[in-house]
């Protein structure tokens, strides 16, 4: 983003574009990376509900897809809350960059 100066900023520090925080990618904060194992996934959607960063992608049918790594901060809530299938977790945390 180009720098803005006082002449170009909206008056009163108003932000005119709703949800434009999406331009700021927080994925680089991550030190642990969640890995989605599709065959263990029962589509319970808990990961989606509990993700603080809205980083679980959902398709038009309401089914989950892979993570949105542009924004995932790697907190690991999804992996901890994942019930998995027959005791096998559908989300595991791995070290980033390995």
């Amino acid at each position: 983003m180009s720098k803005k100066y006082w002449e170009t900023l909206p008056q009163g520090s108003v932000v005119l574009e709703a949800g434009n925080s999406a331009k700021f990618k927080t994925g680089s904060w991550r030190s642990m990376r969640p890995k989605w194992i599709e065959e263990n996934c029962i589509q319970c959607m808990f990961c989606w509900m509990y993700c603080p960063d809205m980083s679980v992608k959902v398709n038009a049918e309401g089914k989950r897809e892979d993570f949105n790594f542009d924004y995932c901060k790697g907190c690991g809530i999804c992996a901890l809350e994942c019930p998995g299938k027959k005791g096998n977790k559908a989300i595991v945390m791995e070290e980033e960059g390995k």
Partner: peptide, 25 residues
């Protein structure tokens, strides 16, 4: 859950709360 998941979030990603914070949830 599945119906809700189809909807759009009204709180966007890219916010700068700490990783694993309870408040955005």
């Amino acid at each position: 859950l599945r119906e809700l998941a189809k909807g759009e979030d009204r709180f966007a990603y890219g916010h700068r709360m700490c990783a694993g914070c309870g408040a955005p949830i």
